[in-house]
């Protein structure tokens, strides 16, 4: 079975690579197979890892155990009945298929948007406050010219990039235009680092696949 898995994986990889020549039935077969298999994974995992053990199980008392002498080890918690409410709200998603009550699906989408918004307000402060505080760097570090220079470059770059983003109005002033242009140039340095990194990431994926074909797959076949 191990060998069959490796051989099939290699054939599939070559099929996907065949798209580089042109789109063909061999590629489309494996593409659709992949989408089907990937789509089949999510629903079961959602039920297995969340809905059954944490919501439906406690609701129906699936975990109630009885000691050998007849005593109940973990009696049913009647508060668990309240889990019916989110399950009913969850069913509202499917109202989208029934035109008469389809507005209920918007209700449950609203709930999801509401809690995501509430959470992200908290998330913003937790993430951004240390970022802002971390930007107040001393421009002069006694005894270290290197740190002083680096901190100064850091603060100037940050301010100019923020100026470029926030002050998007057209102006005649040379200072305004100069600041925006310098901010733009500094952004390009950042994007250059991104480009270099992107090349690495994409090539890493390819390296892994070729390593698989040259190593495991070749060995499994011959």
């Amino acid at each position: 079975m191990e060998t069959a898995t490796v051989v099939f994986a290699g054939i599939g990889t070559l099929a996907i690579f065949s798209f580089l020549i042109k789109e063909n039935p061999f590629y489309r077969f494996f593409e659709h197979l992949f989408i089907g298999v990937a789509a089949g994974l999510l629903p079961i995992l959602t039920i297995r890892n969340l809905l059954y053990p944490n919501v439906i199980g406690p609701l129906i008392g699936a975990d109630i155990q009885v000691f050998p002498d007849g005593e109940i080890a973990n009696p049913y918690n009647y508060w668990n009945l309240l889990f019916i409410i989110p399950l009913i709200f969850g069913l509202f998603y499917y109202a989208v298929f029934i035109p008469k009550v389809s507005w209920l699906s918007r209700l449950v989408i609203g709930i999801s948007l509401g809690y995501s918004a509430g959470l992200s307000i908290k998330g913003f402060f937790a993430e951004m406050i240390p970022q802002v505080l971390g930007s107040f760097k001393p421009l002069v570090v006694p005894g270290s010219i290197g740190d002083s220079v680096n901190n100064s470059i850091f603060v100037i770059t940050l301010l100019l990039v923020m100026y470029y983003f926030f002050c998007t109005f057209k102006g005649e002033s040379t200072a305004h235009n100069g600041a925006r242009y310098t901010g733009r140039l500094l952004l390009m340095v950042c994007f250059g680092a991104f480009f270099g990194s992107t090349v690495m990431a994409r090539m890493a994926l390819l390296v892994e696949r070729i390593q698989f074909l040259v190593g495991e797959w070749w060995t499994a076949i011959f």
Partner: peptide
Amino acid sequence: GCTSITIP
């Protein structure tokens, strides 16, 4: 551990 794209 990040992918190379998200290093910056």
